[in-house]
């Protein structure tokens, strides 16, 4: 099952490699991983998307908690949550028809065109993983030059929060 694990860890050098090393050493799957400092600069917030049976997810959370740098974690998928991913896509956009078609798609998906040249558009798209995937499919015949995805960031709904 797909799970989103969100953790707060000490913003120290090496903390990221401890987490990444744990996943590779124990053979856990990592679908995406994002990390950045929080409003408290001594803490980083990390979102990991992983897959595994219940027992594997239990081990993953226990092993993460065991890392000395990890302050706290929650499995966002255990409750109501919101997830978002940012994607930047550069596509070939020649001629009016093609440029119109891309613009229409971007509007439908509520994305934005953030950079324009005479032969390319760079698009910005935000949404959950499914929406971002769907947008790539929808581009269809449009030639993609490159895709950059941020990986999932997640947050609990309502009062549910991961705080020290």
């Amino acid at each position: 099952m797909r799970r989103i694990i969100s953790l707060l860890l000490e913003n120290e050098s090496g903390a990221l490699s401890r987490v990444a090393g744990l996943f590779s050493a124990r053979g856990y799957n990592i679908e995406s991983l994002t990390v950045a400092p929080t409003e408290d600069p001594t803490l980083s917030r990390m979102t990991i998307v992983t897959r595994g049976s219940d027992s594997i997810i239990e081990q993953i959370t226990k092993q993460l908690n065991k890392l000395v740098d990890v302050v706290k974690l929650i499995d966002l998928t255990e409750g109501q949550h919101i997830e978002r991913e940012l994607m930047l896509v550069k596509v070939v956009a020649h001629g009016n028809d093609e440029r119109e078609e891309v613009k229409r798609l971007v509007d439908i998906f509520r994305g934005r065109i953030i950079d324009v040249t005479d032969s390319t558009y760079t698009l910005e798209m935000t949404g959950n993983g499914d929406k971002v995937d769907a947008f790539i499919l929808a581009l269809g015949q449009v030639e993609i030059i490159e895709v950059v995805r941020s990986g999932i960031s997640g947050i609990g709904r309502g009062k549910r929060a991961l705080k020290v």
């Binding site: 090496g14 490699s17 090393g21 000395v68």
Partner: peptide, 14 residues
């Protein structure tokens, strides 16, 4: 050192 010992320590510091 911290890289090479990371998988076999409880914790390490530089």
């Amino acid at each position: 050192t911290v890289g090479i010992t990371r998988p076999c320590v409880k914790h390490n510091f530089l």
